[in-house]
Write a protein that binds this DNA or RNA. Structure first.
Lengths: 222, 222
DNA sequence: CATTTCCTTACGGGATCCCGTAATTGACCT
DNA sequence: AGGTCAATTACGGGATCCCGTAAGGAAATG
């Protein structure tokens, strides 16, 4: 039975909605909210000290930067840190991210127990997920459960995103190649970069690089 | 006094959070939620029919597409439609969009009454905004109020916007020149187009055309 | 009318992109 | 070793962009 829950989410409207829903629908009274990952970490440390550990972590992945300087920048990092200290902590990620590659990585690398996509029925799915996890199962939102099993159709990898964002900040393909070599990102030759851009242009039906970057921006990829 | 409120937001966690907050903090009992703009429009028509109009509309700007086909794609369109039928309807936009140009346009073109940025204190600001609007004032989130007053430095003409948007949709300078000649837009030679692009690149400190278009998109110009 | 000034257009050369082909590498299997 | 396959890299030619210079034309000025 999950009794004590930590909710980490920068948009207060969402955090508040989750907390209210947990109390009303999942009969969970003990809900702690954090707007920052760093703050969540402190609250976690406090729970260790008080010997009153959390049963469940619900966290977003990305957090807006603001005036406060933050050490922990993403939900993934937070999960990493907390699981190092309390490996059996149940974890649900609640995010708009819906690329199955990303989500698979979280299950594999971070050993999360559930993934719920923020969407029209995110809250309902979240409640479902909690009850599955109480039974000892894992959970993914229904809109994804189909994709999770099938191997990648066409997925945009981090490599593509880095490439696109370098392009969008004005680097030439030559400069990107140099940059990749420095950072040890492979493939790094101009030729391979061109080839990858071609694939992306095909995929997005873009007429040229400008069009490609513009489309990527419209889609919110970069 | 605002008594009857329509909340339009595709993420149920946010919509639910708003509704709960309105009931608890703003003592507004009559809150209607919609996950789709089309659905919101129907509920609005119903309110006309029942002669029980809404006092306040709170809406997001962007909505995820899903299996349901939708006629109204954005919050801006929804506002347009509702205000045509009920011009005095108070309106607050609640979105992650934080580019002041975009927001100014909403105040000018759509005559909205308030703009609240989804953020760490979005809900708190929303409650503040409602109370300001009840007093007959307009409202913008504090993180933006500084930027809203300052005038845009560099004037960008319609010509530039058309040029940039053609570029962003993948036309070559050659094709744009042809297009301009057809439409009777002057200057229309490739040479002049290049020159104008140079000015823009200087202005935006862009290294090349890709960078320029990406920046323009970031600023919300196109 | 002559001159100046500004705007538009024209042209050319070098950089970069675009796209196809071919060579090189490396992993895996027999 | 040899062979196959996929991924990476290399190269070349044509298109497009980039940037400077200069010619042409219209309006403004004296």
């Amino acid at each position: 039975m999950l009794k004590k829950v930590l909710v980490v989410e920068d948009l207060d409207s969402i955090g508040f909605g989750i907390a209210q829903m947990l109390k009303q629908q999942a009969r969970i009274e003990n809900v702690t909210q954090s707007l920052y990952c760093d703050d969540a970490y402190l609250k976690f440390l406090r729970s260790e000290k008080d010997n009153d550990l959390f049963d469940l972590l619900i966290t977003d992945l990305s957090f807006k930067e603001d005036h406060r300087e933050s050490k922990i920048k993403s939900g993934a990092e937070l999960i990493q840190l907390l699981k190092e200290r309390q490996p059996e902590l149940k974890t649900i990620v609640y995010s708009v991210e819906d690329r199955s590659i990303k989500i698979k990585q979280l299950f594999e690398d971070k050993k999360i127990d559930g993934y719920v996509v923020k969407g029209r029925h995110g809250l309902r799915n979240l409640v479902e997920g909690i009850s599955e996890i109480e039974k000892g199962n894992t959970y993914v939102s229904p809109e994804l459960s189909g994709f999770m099993s099938q191997r990648e159709v066409f997925e945009i990898e981090d490599y593509d995103l880095i490439l696109l964002s370098h392009l969008s900040s004005g680097l030439t393909q030559e400069q990107i190649a140099v940059n990749f070599k420095q950072k040890g990102i492979s493939p790094s030759s101009v030729s391979s970069i061109e080839k990858r851009l071609n694939r992306l242009k095909l995929e997005f039906k873009a007429k040229n690089a400008i069009h490609l970057v513009a489309s990527a921006k419209d889609l919110g990829l970069i």
